[in-house]
Design a protein around this nucleic acid. Structure first.
Lengths: 380, 380
DNA sequence: GCATTTACTTTAGGTGATAAATTAAAGCGC
DNA sequence: GCGCTTTAATTTATCACCTAAAGTAAATGC
C-alpha cells in the first residue's frame, strides 16, 4: 500500500498521511518495502509501498470449546503464526480452574514467542455462548458449568494487556468481513450451522451485541411452539430441528449409522448422515427437508427484522446444507412477500476452523490502542 | 439551561460553551432568559439561563395515513404550534397526485406561518410502510397504491429545504426517547399495536433501518406457518392474530358488535371489543388470549435476536393489551430460558396521536444543519 | 464592605489537519 | 543526454478548533 492511496481512502490529505506514517515508521509499527518490489509501469515517481511490520506485536487468541481449548498466536498483520490445542474436560472446571489453566498455557506460549515479537497487543478469548464483551463476563456457555464469570479481569491483571472476550460467532463473522467478496456488505448476517446454531449480526460492519451480549440468538428463536426439544430446555427452537444433534437424534431411530454418543454426534457420524442425505436416501432427505423448513421460517423472521444485505450460511454443518436448501427456500417464499425479502441475498461460505482465530485476532488488533503500543515499543 | 451545565454535559470546556453560545445568540437561534426567572437559593453569581428561540425556525411534519393526511407545524423547540387534517382517498392517488396535494397543502401552511417564523428548517413525511430515508423512496405503503416513489426529491426542489422521509413507527419511537423515563435505554424496541402491527428498533438511540428501510417488520414475523391470513397475503404472521383487523375478524363471527366494514374496524368497534375482553366476556377473552400468545412468541424472538433494554408496547391497540398480557407472558416464558430473556424489560406506554408528529419534528430538527440555518437566518 | 462563592469571558497557546509550494524520482521525446 | 512531463512524497505556513488559566461579574454571608 502506497502513501498516495491512503489519503483518499481515509479521507485525509497527503500531508497528514506523511506525518502519520513518519511517526509509525519511527515507532517501528510499519516499514517501507524495498523499491524494486513494484514495477510501476507508468511514468512519474514510483510509489513507495509501506506495510505493517508483522513482528511489531502479537495477539494470543484462545478458543474455549467443549472438552478442548485451542491457543494460537497471531502477528501484527493478523496472520496465524503458531497454534496448539489441549484436550480438557471443560464441563468439570471451576472458574478458578479455568483461569489457572488459561494463565499457564498462555504464559507458556508468551514465553515461547517473546523473542520473535516485541509486544503482546492483547489476548482474545473466543467462546460459544453468551458473553458480555464490555463487562468481561462469561454469562453462559455450553462448554462450561459455571455462569457469570468475570474472566477477562483476572487475565488483564496477570498479563497486563487488554483482554477481549468475544462470542465465537462474532469472531467468525469478523473474519468473513475481511474477505473482499463480503466486505461490500455493511449489514451482514452470518449463521453458523454445527453442533448448535449460532448467528452473528454485523450492522455497519460492527457486531451487534445487544444489551448484555446475548443478541442474535437465532438458534433459540421459535419454529413451532411446543415442538422439538432443544438443548436449552425449551421446545420448538430452530436449533432443535437443524443442528447436528437434532438431525442425528431424528436419524438414529431410523437409520444405521456409526456408533457413538447420540447426544453429541461425532464428525464421522455427521459426515455419514450428510452423505446419505446428499445421495438422496429418502429417510435422511426427509430429515434434512424438515430441518430446512425450520431454518427457512427462522431466516424469514431474520429477514423481516434485520433486512440485511446478505445472509451467509457457514459452520461445519454447511456441508449438509444443500440437502436442506429446497425446503428452506420454499419456506422463505411461503413466509414473506417479496417486498419484505427486499434486496437480501442468501449465500453459503465454506467452513474453515481457523476463522474463529482470524476474526478474533483481527478484532483484538483493531481494538489495540496504537498510543499504548507505541509506548511499549519505545521502551522495549 | 445554564452555560455552566452545558460544558460537562457535552464534554467541552466552559470557554467553548461561551464561544458557541455567543455565536448562536448573534444568529438569533438561542436567547437569554431574563435573570429573575431563577431564584438561585445558593451563593455566587446566578446562572444565566439560555433557551432555544422557539421562533428561530419551523418544521412541517406531514403524516400520510389511509384516507387522511395530517399536517402540523413544529417550532424550533419541537412543540406543535399548528395542526390541520384533510380527508383524502389516498388509495386512488397517483404519485403525481400525491405530490401535487402535498405541495398545495404545505405551501398554504408555509404562507400562513411565515410571519411568525424566520425559516423553514425542514419537512418531515411520516408514513406507514416501507420507506428508504436515505434515497427518499416510498417503497411500499398500505395507504398508497403505487410503489417505489421518489417523493422527497420533488418536495426538496419545490421548497428548497431538506425533506425527511420516515416510517411512522420510527417517529413514534423517537418521540418516546425524549421521554425522560425511557431516555436511559439506548437499545429500545417499540411495538405499535393498531390496525396493523408496527415496530421500531432503536440501537444506541438511533432507528435501525436495515439495508432498504424494511427492517423491524415485526408484524410479519411468523407465529405459525400456514396459520391465519395476513393483510400482506401470507399466512401465520403475528399481525394476523394480534392486530385490530385480526381481532375483529375473529370476533364478528361470534359476537354482537357495532356494524361497519369488518376488514377496517372503526375506533368505536374496536373500543366495544376491547371493553368486552377487559370485562371478562369469555369469547372476547379467548380471542385476546390467542392474540397474546402469538404476540408473546413473536416478542420472544425479538428478545432472542435483539436483546434490548426495554420493549415498549404502545399504539391505539394498547388499550386492549391487558387482556392479552397473561397469555403473552406465558408464551414468552415458554419460549425462552431466563438467560435469553436477560435484562430485557417489557412495559406499555399510553397512546397519544401526536407522538408521530413530535418524533418527526424532533428528527427533522436533529438533522438540521445549523450552518445552513444560520446562513438563512442572517439573510432574512 | 470585604471575603467568598459561583458564573461567565478573555487571552494566549496547543493540537491537528490542510492547501500550496517544494522536492524527489521516475519516463518520454528529441 | 538533457530538459519536460508526470506522479509521489515532504515541507511550510496557516487555519480552525478547543482549552487551561487568568480575569471579570454578580450574587451571598458575616
Amino acid at each position: 500500500m502506497a502513501r498516495v492511496d491512503l489519503g483518499p481512502m481515509n479521507g485525509i490529505s497527503s500531508a497528514t498521511v506523511t506525518s502519520i506514517t513518519a511517526e509509525l515508521l519511527g515507532q517501528g509499527l510499519i516499514s517501507e518495502l524495498p523499491p524494486e518490489t513494484i514495477r510501476s509501469g507508468g511514468r512519474g515517481r514510483p510509489k513507495t509501498l509501506i506495510q505493517l511490520n508483522p513482528d511489531a506485536a502479537f495477539v494470543i487468541c484462545v478458543k474455549v470449546s467443549i472438552n478442548e481449548i485451542q491457543i494460537v498466536v497471531g502477528d501484527f498483520t493478523g496472520q496465524i503464526r503458531h497454534s496448539t490445542h489441549h484436550p480438557l474436560t471443560t464441563l468439570t472446571l471451576t472458574q478458578d480452574d479455568l483461569c489457572a489453566v488459561l494463565e499457564e498455557k498462555i504464559e507458556a506460549i508468551r514465553a515461547d514467542v517473546c523473542d520473535t515479537f516485541h509486544y503482546l497487543a492483547g489476548i482474545c478469548l473466543a467462546i460459544q455462548g453468551v458473553v458480555s464483551p464490555n463487562s468481561g463476563l462469561i454469562i453462559w456457555s455450553p462448554a462450561l458449568s459455571f455462569r457469570n464469570a468475570p474472566i477477562s479481569e483476572r487475565l488483564t491483571t496477570t498479563f497486563g494487556c487488554p483482554v477481549l472476550l468475544e462470542n465465537d460467532a462474532n469472531c467468525i463473522a469478523r473474519a468473513l468481513t475481511s474477505h473482499p467478496e463480503y466486505a461490500a456488505y455493511p449489514n451482514l448476517i452470518v449463521i453458523m450451522l454445527g453442533y448448535g446454531i449460532g448467528m452473528s449480526v454485523l450492522i455497519d460492519g460492527k457486531p451487534f451485541l445487544g444489551t448484555n451480549g446475548s443478541a442474535a440468538e437465532f438458534g433459540h428463536t421459535k419454529y413451532e411452539p411446543g415442538g422439538a426439544l432443544c438443548a436449552c430446555g425449551r421446545r420448538g427452537c430452530i436449533e432443535a430441528y437443524a443442528s447436528d444433534y437434532a438431525l442425528y437424534r431424528e436419524a438414529r431411530a431410523m437409520l444405521t449409522l456409526p456408533p457413538g454418543d447420540s447426544a453429541h454426534p461425532s464428525d464421522a457420524q455427521m459426515q455419514a448422515l450428510n452423505q446419505m442425505a446428499m445421495e438422496g436416501d429418502p429417510v435422511a432427505s426427509q430429515i434434512y427437508s424438515k430441518a430446512g423448513r425450520a431454518l427457512g421460517y427462522g431466516i424469514a423472521n431474520v429477514l423481516a427484522l434485520f433486512n440485511p444485505d446478505l445472509v451467509l450460511i457457514t459452520g461445519s454443518g454447511v456441508r449438509g446444507f444443500e440437502a436442506m436448501r429446497p425446503a428452506m427456500e420454499e419456506a422463505i417464499d411461503d413466509a414473506l412477500v417479496e417486498e419484505l425479502i427486499g434486496p437480501s441475498r442468501l449465500a453459503t461460505s465454506p467452513w474453515d476452523r481457523d476463522m474463529t482465530f482470524l476474526g478474533g485476532i483481527a478484532m483484538t488488533l483493531h481494538a489495540t490502542d496504537l498510543q499504548t503500543l507505541a509506548g511499549c515499543q519505545a521502551s522495549a
